[in-house]
């Protein structure tokens, strides 16, 4: 009986406003019998309700007419399915390109090496053909007079002087004169 005379504190009353089931059976019993506590509860409830009512009163009325727009179809890329599909496609394309690149890389390297040797061989062959053609179709000596490219000084004797044969070269003679044995 003593417990019933103890009034509910303000904090407990606020908990009660939030949820009545939160009270203990003793507190419930007290509340049903105590007019003071019920009055306190109603006063606090009224104050908080008043705050809401005043807010509603002091809020402006919306002057703009109610919007009634037709539903617009979303662009494909921004639709829930569209962007996922686009992303998946992009990933698939990227994967394919990367896979192809790596798969054909050794083959491409081999091809490039083979091509290089083939190209060198072809260039050599072409060069040799040109040299052979020049040798085969060389101008006769008479034409050298006409073109002015013939020089008297450049006969065989002169060439022998410039480029002597190996057994007669000047270096060997010099070695012999100084008493060195020939190799």
């Amino acid at each position: 009986m003593n417990q019933k005379r103890i009034h509910l504190e303000e904090d407990r009353i606020m908990a009660l406003i939030i949820d009545e089931t939160d009270l203990s059976p003793v507190e419930k019993e007290h509340l049903s019998e105590c007019a003071d506590c019920r009055g306190k509860k109603e006063k606090i409830q009224e104050e908080f309700a008043l705050l809401g009512n005043l807010a509603e009163k002091f809020a402006p009325e919306s002057k703009r007419p109610v919007l009634r727009k037709k539903r617009e179809p979303r662009p494909f890329l921004t639709s829930a399915f569209g962007w996922k599909l686009s992303l998946a496609s992009a990933v698939a394309v990227l994967f394919t390109i990367t896979a192809t690149w790596y798969f054909f890389k050794p083959l491409r390297l081999q091809n490039s090496r083979q091509n290089a040797s083939e190209w060198t061989a072809a260039t050599d062959h072409e060069l040799m053909s040109e040299i052979n053609a020049m040798v085969e179709t060389a101008f006769p000596r008479t034409y050298l007079y006409i073109t002015g490219e013939y020089h008297k000084g450049l006969n065989d004797e002169f060439i022998m002087f410039i480029v002597p044969p190996v057994n007669n070269d000047s270096a060997s003679r010099l070695f012999r004169m100084k008493g060195h044995a020939t190799c």
Partner: peptide
């Protein structure tokens, strides 16, 4: 939600400006 609401109510109820507003309005 109840916990947050309880804390908020206790704070607001104890605030002097709330009490003044209620006194003036009521």
């Amino acid at each position: 939600i109840k916990t947050f609401l309880y804390r908020a109510m206790v704070k607001i109820k104890k605030d002097p400006s709330f009490q003044t507003l209620m006194r003036e309005t009521l």
